[in-house]
Amino acid sequence: MKRAFITGITGQDGSYLTELLLGKGYEVHGLVRRSSTLNRSRIDHLHQDPNLHLHYGDLTDGVSLVNLVRAIEPHEVYNLGAQSHVKVSFEMPEYTASTDAVGTLRLLEAIRAADLDCRFYQASTSEMFGATPPPQSESTAFYPRSPYGAAKLYSHWVTVNYREAYGLYAVSGILFNHESPRRGESFVTRKITLGVAAIKHGVTDKLVLGNLDAVRDWGYAPEYVEGMWRMLQHDEPQDYVLATGTGATVREFCAAAFAHAGLDWKEHVTYDQQYERPTEVDALIGDASRARDVLGWEAKVHAPELARIMVDADLEQLGRLLGR
């Protein structure tokens, strides 16, 4: 039985990856931060699986990582843990750097110190491209426009360095925006679909957003965790972009989400400058040709269908809460 260690197991990607690996017969170990309240709603439905094991630790605590890696002896490590909100990274740059940048270094060092023969996946991000015009591929120049993007760029390059310096099987998946009904409520796609549900159910009449002109390449998270797994099954380690190859503005995603609920977004959406970033990323559209050609991976769900999936889930969830 293969053993996998996942940081960020309670997040969107971590929960879908856990389902995928358990379905493939893995023993899955997850890193959970200790806090005064439990935040495991995304994996609660898996807690009775005997092959799922949760451990307390933190990417900002190197000792806990060393101890866990030595105890678990994983065959595969997926580093999905991060402070992943771009806007928040401007408000908490030092914490973002400690978790997203140095946290990766701590984990790589823990693996090296334990002399493990394992495969390592680093969750890189399209935000590393930042101001570089699309389409963006593995050979595109990086130009991050946020503390989050800069921290992730450090992680990306230190992963490459450990691969080249120490012969680790280490890869970075440069994933473009990928969403789902499990997306955090402060991310714009989920904020939109939650807003649609609240308006449709009569809870509110308005949704406040920031930049409607930003272009993003939005895919479906369950498909993207399949891509992560495929990266670690290939004979040779290399980095891959995962993306749909098509872009949509926030405005277009918003229009699709409202239309699916029979609403006109123009009647409900208002603008507030406080939701703008200090430095904006105008357009991210990925070229996932390498992943298609080498891994046989290709995105099936694009932004319009994604909007429908998320709206349906949030309508149902809010309806249950309201007793409807």
Rank of each mutant, 00 (worst) to 15 (best):
A82I: 06
A110T: 00
G23D: 03
D117M: 02
P181V: 03
A243G: 06
P237I: 03
E316I: 11
D61M: 01
S146M: 12
S186G: 10
Q48E: 14
L212W: 01
R251D: 07
R119Y: 10
Y95Q: 14
S289C: 11
P74N: 07
H47E: 15
E127P: 11
G57V: 00
Q48R: 14
P237T: 00
A131V: 06
L153K: 00
L263Y: 03
D293C: 08
H156S: 12
G23I: 02
P278E: 02
T246V: 15
N51V: 06
K206Y: 00
S35L: 12
L153S: 05
I309M: 05
R40I: 15
S89H: 09
Y154G: 02
I43K: 00
I9W: 04
P237H: 01
Y56L: 13
D293W: 05
N79G: 10
E267W: 08
H201D: 10
E280C: 09
Q317Y: 11
V32T: 14
R277V: 11
G247E: 02
A113C: 10
L318E: 08
Y271Q: 11
W229R: 13
K191S: 11
G184A: 06
V241P: 05
A101T: 08
D312G: 01
E223M: 11
C118Q: 10
D213R: 11
T246A: 11
H234P: 06
I309N: 02
P147R: 04
P144M: 08
K2A: 13
D13F: 15
V250I: 15
L22R: 07
N211W: 10
P304E: 05
V32N: 08
E94C: 07
H75P: 08
P181W: 14
E76I: 07
A141F: 13
F142V: 14
V269M: 02
P278S: 09
D61R: 01
L153H: 03
E223K: 12
A256M: 01
H47F: 14
V196A: 06
V208E: 14
E127H: 15
V225W: 06
F253H: 10
T270V: 15
G103E: 03
T96R: 05
Y148N: 04
M231T: 04
G296A: 05
D205G: 15
H75Y: 09
H75F: 07
M310Y: 01
G227T: 02
D13R: 01
Y220M: 05
D282T: 12
K87R: 12
E276F: 07
G30S: 06
E276G: 02
L108F: 04
